[in-house]
Simulated assay, not measured.
Amino acid sequence: MRHPLLEQNQGAITDVTGITVGHHSDGRRPTGCTVVIARDGAVAGVDVRGAAPGTRETDLLAPGNLVQQVHAVMLAGGSAWGLDAASGAVRWLEEQGVGLDVGVGRLPLVPAAVLFDLHLGDMKVRPDAAAGYAACQAASGAPPAEGNVGAGSGAVVGKMFGMQHAMKGGLGTASVSVAGVTVGALIACNAVGDVVHPDTGLPLAGARTQDGRQLRDTRRALLAGEPPHALLAGSNTTIGVIATDARLTKVQAQRLAVAGHDGLARAINPVHTMSDGDTLFTLATGVHAQHPGMMVLATMAAEAVARASVRAVLAARSLTTDQGLLLPCHADLARADSRSQPG
């Protein structure tokens, strides 16, 4: 049984002119990386809301700092080790002649963020520079694959009451267009909380009940006094990229990243916790000088992020680890629920 939101054409971040995306998924264990490339450069911003982030090159995105454009953003599994994937992207972009002109050559600027997926399989297998390079080689303007791919390969959601009750997370993308301008989002969802329907607030994937057959609804469980499982700090994170073809300043790009977190709040509950490193980047390629204004763009960004977060779990596939841990996906519970219905 496929969810209606998955059947609808939700678009992709690659609908934004000047943006390409590539994945590398490691076959040795569930981990990988995803790169979002703007070869001609893009004005960038970032907003970090989680209390346990793992990032690279975020300081240069501050509106008051010198650099105006970056050339890619890397999202990776592997926790802090995964930040090395950005080095591979830097090498690939340099080979393509892409980067900031520093007189003696071109320096590619590649901010990055990582999520924690080390519980699944051999933690010594994690994205490195070779993985980042391979993701760049695979990049295209086609709609990127979703679910258990790239940075979403080892993503898990609903860990508030222990991994044994969690579900498979993943990677999703969506886009929104208004007045000829497009805003797209790409999200790798590894949240400690549930992923919920943005309109109804009902959980789609997350912590399951003791028998594993239904969703527990983490928000209601916590408010009813059910104690959370002890959480390892930094072991959960939702990271992503917002892209637009509107022409923005660095201040505006940073504000669009801020607005994108509203989309996370609509689709993940709880979100921005002490155990999450939630981080969103913005890339503005500037193809369209005229746009409908920041109020509309911010609304578009939040909507694209919310839709992409939902798609991350709706497109995910179930996974059983070598240690015997079963992580079902949304489709598994939906099928079970349909079988239990009368008639």
Rank of each mutant, 00 (worst) to 15 (best):
A191I: 02
A191H: 02
A191N: 06
V192N: 00
V192C: 15
D194W: 05
V196I: 15
H197L: 05
H197P: 04
P198V: 00
D199P: 01
D199T: 11
T200N: 12
G201S: 07
L202N: 13
P203Q: 13
P203Y: 07
A205L: 05
G206S: 06
A207Y: 03
A207W: 00
Q210H: 07
Q210V: 14
G212A: 09
G212L: 02
G212V: 08
R213D: 12
Q214D: 15
L215G: 08
L215K: 04
L215F: 09
L215D: 04
R216D: 05
D217I: 08
T218D: 12
R219D: 03
R220L: 14
L222F: 11
L222S: 11
G225H: 12
G225C: 06
G225N: 10
E226W: 09
P227R: 09
P227E: 01
H229L: 00
H229Y: 11
H229S: 10
A230H: 14
L231F: 02
L231C: 07
L232H: 13
L232W: 07
S235V: 00
S235P: 01
N236H: 13
N236F: 08
T237M: 11
T238N: 09
I239Y: 10
V241I: 11
V241P: 01
I242D: 03
T244N: 10
T244D: 12
D245H: 10
A246M: 05
A246L: 11
L248Y: 07
L248C: 11
V251A: 15
Q252W: 00
Q252G: 06
Q252S: 13
Q252R: 08
A253L: 03
A253Q: 03
Q254M: 12
Q254D: 08
Q254T: 15
L256S: 01
